[in-house]
Design a protein around this nucleic acid. Structure first.
Lengths: 344, 344
DNA sequence: GCAGGAACCGGAACCGGTTCCACTCCCAGT
DNA sequence: ACTGGGAGTGGAACCGGTTCCGGTTCCTGC
């Protein structure tokens, strides 16, 4: 494996010049640069990342802390991050904290102990199992996607608007008797989750239009969980005419329950979700769309710009803790329609 | 940020001894080790990974090349890898090649140019966009999960057995008129995909039992794609009594189509898939289960053992290219039953 | 009492780049 | 002709660990 020294010797220059030539630094004559480049290609030279890291203190790597990787939302964000990082010639170091199970805290500690990255993105803040306020001490750009947070730069769907749009869509169709069904988040404080923000938005809409007040239902986070919960709800005589689900997964559970109970959608029951997962289209589910992969690309773009401004260490100014919220977009399919016999 | 030198000075020993003490190497008295450890804790010392890399040539990182991260199978494997790697105090460097889109080849080249890892796992071999035979030159343990391959160690569900079990299950129930529906793989050579192996197994079972011969149907890889294909198939008068799908995603599309056409499952149609995705349970889908997360854990275990045997560079012996194939397990739910009027 | 050796430790040479600083040219300005 | 300065380059000091090698010390065996 040839080293920089070999390249320098082959090109008849010093290590210093060879380094400058290959890294594109200024102060090298075009002729010399070409000579060095040629020698490097010739020898099949590949710079040692370890040596570069040690000398520059830069890893050209961005870390991702996520509570899970095999769920749609997290996977999509990660996909966007990986794509954007690649475009910037950066690698992605993945820490799958698995906070949905246990052991997330230990993994977080391991990251703090030995994770060496230039920038960090946490996919959701409160879900990952660790004291995330300590991340600020890292002295690197930190951003969160999936939830607004005062502790760092953040990117997230406007959950309130999403919740409102979902409810308003059904109200506009004539529904007066709605129910909100959300899935619980297993680790997250209940009052800081996206589900909760959507739920509260629903309640605001309910109050605004004087809709019938129904108890809040929370189901386990799984299609099966929401399916069973929905079955119970829909089996009752006074079931609502429409259900606003906090996510598409929950909404699909409702669809499933309706199917099993022989309740026709949308004739007898309207259902709306949030996310627009790939399967939503196949099921004809009306939903509020968000694009997590885009969020992932944006968060990397921000990290790169932060890195460009402050190549090393602490920024001298106050760190950017602004929040980017994405506007939800309503996607109307065939799971929503006016109620059969509008009341009120 | 304290360095090893500081720790050594604080403990009143040399850098060499401090290094040995902290790394757990032999040749340090218990008393000295404790003293150094204490000093390190005291100063909040964290060893520089970059320096360690440079000195040892080890990255304590394993790379993952995957065609996608936001699909169930890949995400699950990745989850297993991340979990196991963490248990071995290794990091995970993710290369999402995105071969389902374009640009996979460039990303692969970037990995070859600058990816520095101790071990590598590719999730599927032919799907990722690059000349993977070059990976052997890396001189590090390489393994593949998701498909058997002669080029490297590999881990994969026994697709033939899975395909046979699925078909045999329906035959055992009395079906004589089956159809196999598989989704195409966009990049993979068609004759090397898991779908293809499952399809050929189906054909063997068909021949063995002299079942009615039906044309092979291939659908686009998406729930929507298989849904539409299934609708066309099921709308015909002479539709089969059972459908063997190459994956659960395809099977769910069939279920969806049956629902829209008012065909009752399993009374009028049996459906079986492969994978046992989380949603399969909610839909009552009979399927062949595999556990990709386990495959991920196993592949990491193998890499770790290979690393332990040959700490550096090329193994002197022939590299291990054996294949581990996982036995499929049939999970019977409510989408399969004897046909209404058994023929033959 | 003394050779032999094991256990422990320190000095210094690495690993392979980057970058500061000094030095040499060469050319424009007066 | 002489100087100021910028462009191009080389020497050498880093970055922060690991590890080889040699030197003490102390204990065991004869």
């Amino acid at each position: 494996m040839p080293k920089l020294d070999d390249v320098a010797r082959a090109a008849g220059v010093s290590k210093a010049t060879a380094s400058r030539a290959l890294s594109g630094a200024a102060g090298v004559s075009p002729a010399t640069r070409a000579k060095v480049q040629h020698a490097a290609d010739d020898l099949g030279f590949r710079a040692s990342g370890a040596a570069r890291r040690l000398a520059t203190g830069l890893t050209r790597t961005i870390g991702v802390l996520t509570p899970s990787v095999d769920r749609w939302y997290f996977g999509s964000v990660l996909h966007g991050i990986a794509h954007a990082a690649d475009a910037h010639e950066h690698d992605v170091l993945l820490y799958d904290l698995g906070a949905f199970g246990r052991g997330g805290h230990e993994k977080f500690e391991r990251f703090m102990r030995r994770g060496e990255v230039d920038g960090l993105v946490t996919i959701t803040w409160s879900l990952v199992g660790g004291d995330l306020s300590r991340l600020a001490e890292l002295g690197i750009p930190v951003a969160t996607v999936g939830e607004p947070t005062p502790h760092s730069r953040s990117f997230c769907l406007d959950d309130s608007a999403a919740g409102e749009q979902a409810a308003e869509h059904l109200v506009r169709l004539g529904h007066r008797d709605l129910l909100h069904l959300s899935s619980e988040t297993e680790v997250q404080p209940i009052d800081a989750s996206s589900s909760d923000r959507r739920k509260r938005a629903f309640e605001r809409v309910s109050a605004r239009h004087g809709l019938r007040l129904r108890p809040v239902i929370v189901t386990p986070t799984s299609l099966e969980g929401s399916h069973l919960a929905a079955r119970e709800i829909l089996a009752r005589r006074d079931r609502p005419t429409g259900i606003v689900a906090s996510t598409d997964e929950v909404a699909l559970g409702v669809l499933l329950a309706a199917h099993h109970l022989g309740i026709r959608v949308p004739e007898e029951l309207s259902v709306i979700g949030v996310d627009d997962v790939p399967t939503a289209a196949a099921f004809g589910l009306t939903t509020i769309r968000q694009d997590p992969a885009q969020h992932g690309e944006d968060v990397v773009a921000w990290i790169m710009s932060a890195l460009a401004q402050h190549p090393h260490g602490q920024p001298d100014t106050e760190p950017d803790r602004s929040h980017t919220s994405y506007a939800p977009v309503l996607v109307i399919r065939s799971s929503t329609a006016p109620p059969r016999e509008p009341r009120g």
